[in-house]
Design a protein around this nucleic acid. Structure first.
Length: 242
DNA sequence: AAATGTCCCAACCGCAATTCA
DNA sequence: ATGAATTGCGGTTGGGACATT
């Protein structure tokens, strides 16, 4: 069977990091029309991206309720347990961690948890997995039992975010550019024209609450879709905790 | 201060599964 | 029933940020 490529490499579509303008276009379109057809979406939304790229961006970073960084101990233990039980079925694992995407969990596993898991395995000849073993393939309801890992010494559990760019506390310092304070105290971005290749700070660098206050969000651009921040801000709840 | 190495995240790619006509 | 179109998944990689020399 010959398939039409989901992403046509010869079409000259943009690749690489998403700009705030692209994010906003995608959010506005999905909020207004949903995402019934990812293939058609970029065209309808005015994005020079392939549908696959749009879907990935939405699922991993822009959809409502998504959480970023700062994994709790419980979340990490759940990932380790489920991965031991299910293997690299990241989408299934992600389904047990509300707000986490499979991609982010996969990255977190390779960056942090794999080492810790290997260390635990080395220090504990036979991992106690009674809870995990009780998980049935057709019933992913999981009761998280932290007991098998409670013996992990604090020294082996690295709860501190090792990467600055995903640390929530750091985002507040990242909003200084390109946003700036206007005379009335609101954050202002001069215009989409400013979001060039040289100025591609991802939208995740901003607080959604702050973005809502940016003139574009309260103006005509998203006015038809936005009534209050919580109605569409993907990580609003997280930012609200700051 | 500059060069080099390492880490880690965002995004891409290929392919399998599913849906649709 | 068939094949095209679309979606979803997991592996992989490019490149920026940070650490080390």
């Amino acid at each position: 069977m010959v398939k039409t490529p989901y992403c046509d490499k010869k079409s000259g579509l943009k690749k690489g990091t998403w700009t705030p303008e692209e994010d906003w276009k995608l959010i506005a379109h999905v909020n207004a029309h949903g995402h019934k057809n990812w293939r058609q979406l970029p065209k309808l939304a005015g994005l020079a991206r392939c549908g696959k790229s749009c879907r990935l961006r939405w699922v991993n970073y822009l959809r409502p309720g998504i959480k970023r960084g700062n994994y709790t101990h419980e979340e990490e233990e759940t990932i380790i347990k489920l991965r031991t039980s299910l293997g690299n079925r990241w989408s299934v694992i992600a389904s047990h961690l509300p707000g986490r995407s499979d991609n982010e969990i996969k990255n977190h596993w390779h960056a942090h948890l794999k080492k810790r898991f290997q260390h635990d395995e080395a220090s504990t000849p036979k991992l106690h997995l009674s809870t995990v073993e009780s998980i049935q393939e057709n019933n992913y309801s999981v009761e998280v039992d932290p007991s098998p890992f409670q013996n992990s010494s604090p020294a082996t559990y690295d709860a501190s975010p090792s990467s600055h760019h995903t640390s929530m506390s750091d985002f507040s310092s990242m909003i200084t550019e390109p946003a700036s304070a206007s005379s009335d105290g609101n954050l202002v971005i001069d215009g989409f024209a400013d979001f060039t290749e040289e100025n591609t700070d991802p939208i995740s660098a901003y607080s959604w609450e702050e973005l809502y206050e940016i003139s574009y969000f309260s103006g005509e651009f998203l006015a038809p879709f936005v009534t209050e921040p919580q109605s569409f801000c993907p990580v609003y709840d997280v930012w609200g905790l700051l």
